[in-house]
Design a binder for these strands. Structure first.
Lengths: 243, 243
DNA sequence: TTGAATATTGTAGGAAATTACAGGTGCGTC
DNA sequence: GACGCACCTGTAATTTCCTACAATATTCAA
C-alpha cells in the first residue's frame, strides 16, 4: 500500500475515535472540516430526506453550506427534484454527484439545480445515502472545488461519513420517540398489511370483527390516516409494524 | 495511533481493494477467512432476512458455518426467534451477539438458540445488519472462539463487512429484476398509499374511478395481493413505489 | 380514588372496494 | 396483419370498510 493510501487510512480511524469525544453539532462540523480537507471537501450538509408533507429545512442535522445557495434551494423546494436526493432514495451506496444525472423525471429541473450548485462553486460532490429505521432516511452530501475521489479514498470517506452521521444523530436526537400504537393496533395493522379483512383478523385474534375495526380506527386517528391502506403505508414507512 | 491499530487499518483497506478482483462466492469466503482471522473470526454467514413466507435457506448468500448447527438451525426454523436476526431488523449499527439478548419476545426460545450456537463453539459473534433497497434486508454474522472487538477494531470490521456484502451481492445477483408494475399501476398504488380512494385518484389523474379500480386490480394480481392494502404493503416492502 | 387510556362489543347506514361480465383504443412486435 | 399489452370505460352484485352513537371492563398513573 502506498504512503498516500496509508495516510488516509490512518486519518479515517483517528477521525472515528475523535468523534466519540464530540458533544455538539458544531464540534462535529469542525472535525469534519479538518478531516475531510485531505480529500478536498469544504462544504457539508446532512439533511433528512423529507416525506412529501415535510419541509427539508426542518430536517437538516448539520451544515456548512454556502448560505446563498441554501436559501435559494429551500425557497424553491429544490429537494423535490434534486437528482442527488432522488438517487439517495434508490441506492445505498455512496455516489458522486455526477452519477446522479440519469434520472429522466428530473430533467430539465435537475439540470437547473446542478447548475445552480455549480454557480456557488460546487461542481463536484460526493453523497452517502443513509437508510435507517423508523422511516428515517438521510444523507451526507459533501462538496469541494478539487476532490480526491479514487477507489482507495472512497471507502475511507464512506466510513468517516457513516460514523459522523451516527454521532450527529446521537448528539441531536438522544431519545427515540416511542411507538405511538398499542400492541393490538399493531397486530390489527400487521394483519391488514398481509391482506386480511377485519373479519379475518378478528377470527385470527379471537375477537369480533367490530373490535378489529375499532383498533384500525384508532390507529388511523393516531397516524392521521384517511383509511386502513393509508394507515398501513404510514406504519410501514415509519417502521411501526414489521411484516 | 498504535502499531496494532495501524495494522488493521491497512488490512481493512487492502481487503477492500482485493474484493474487486474476486469473482466467485468461494473466493470471497476465502478472502474473508484470511482477512478476518486477525480479529479472531472463523465462521461467517450472510443470509437474507426472510419474510414470513420465505425459508431462510433460500437466502443464504455466503457461508462458512458449522454444518451440524446450520442443519439444526434450518430444520427448526430458528430464524423466526433468533435474537440476532430480530435485532437486525431493529437496528442499522453492527452489534455483538451478546447485545441481542434483551428481546422479551424471544425468551426463552432465544436462549435456546444462543445456547445451541455455543454448543458448536460459537459463544461470541458480531453481526452487521444490512438494510438495502428492494425490500432486501440481510446481515453478515461472524463468529470465532476469541474475538478482538474494541472501539478501534469494530469500525474496520464494519467497513470490511459492508464491502464484502456488496461484492457478494454483485457476484451473486448481477441483474436487478425490473419493476413488474406499469406506470399507471404504480401511480394508482401510490395515491392509495397516501389515503386516496379510487374516485379521488381518478379525479387526480383525470380518468374514471373504474379505470383506477382496474389498475389496482391488475396490480393486486401481479403482486399476488388479496386486496388494495395488501398490494400497497407489498409494493412498499419491495420498493416498487415511493411515497 | 379518580380519570385517562386500552380493550372489548353492539347497531346501523352510507361509502368504498372487489369481482364478474364486457368492450373499446393505441402501440409495438413477430 | 395478428397478437399481446397497456390503458381506458361501463354495469351490477356482493363484500368490506368507515363512522356515528353507545356501552362495559381493566389497567395504570396522578
Amino acid at each position: 500500500m502506498s504512503g498516500r493510501s496509508l495516510d488516509h487510512t490512518i486519518h479515517a480511524f483517528e477521525f472515528i475515535e475523535e468523534l466519540d469525544r464530540l458533544a455538539s453539532p458544531q464540534a462535529i462540523i469542525d472535525a469534519m472540516e479538518r478531516s475531510f480537507a485531505q480529500y478536498g471537501f469544504e462544504n457539508f450538509i446532512m439533511p433528512g430526506l423529507p416525506h412529501p408533507e415535510q419541509q427539508i429545512e426542518s430536517l437538516v442535522l448539520l451544515k456548512k453550506w454556502p448560505l446563498g445557495w441554501y436559501e435559494r434551494y429551500t425557497r424553491n423546494s429544490y429537494d423535490r427534484h434534486d437528482p442527488v436526493i432522488r438517487l439517495c432514495r434508490r441506492t445505498v451506496q455512496p455516489f458522486e454527484w455526477g452519477e446522479a444525472h440519469s434520472d429522466p423525471e428530473t430533467i430539465p429541473k435537475g439540470r437547473e439545480i446542478m447548475h445552480g450548485a455549480a454557480d456557488f462553486g460546487m461542481r463536484q460532490g460526493y453523497c452517502l445515502p443513509i437508510h435507517g429505521l423508523n422511516g428515517f432516511e438521510a444523507c451526507l452530501s459533501m462538496s469541494g472545488p478539487d476532490l480526491d475521489l479514487t477507489p482507495q479514498t472512497k471507502p475511507a470517506i464512506h466510513l468517516m461519513s457513516m460514523y459522523a452521521f451516527e454521532r450527529a444523530r446521537l448528539v441531536l436526537a438522544p431519545s427515540a420517540r416511542p411507538n405511538p400504537l398499542t400492541a393490538r393496533e399493531r397486530e390489527a395493522l400487521r394483519w391488514a398489511a398481509l391482506g386480511k379483512s377485519a373479519a379475518d383478523t378478528g377470527e385470527i385474534l379471537g375477537v369480533t370483527e367490530r373490535t378489529i375495526t375499532a383498533h384500525i380506527g384508532s390507529a388511523c386517528a393516531k397516524l392521521s390516516a384517511a383509511n386502513k391502506t393509508h394507515a398501513v403505508a404510514r406504519a410501514l414507512q415509519h417502521r411501526l409494524i414489521e411484516i
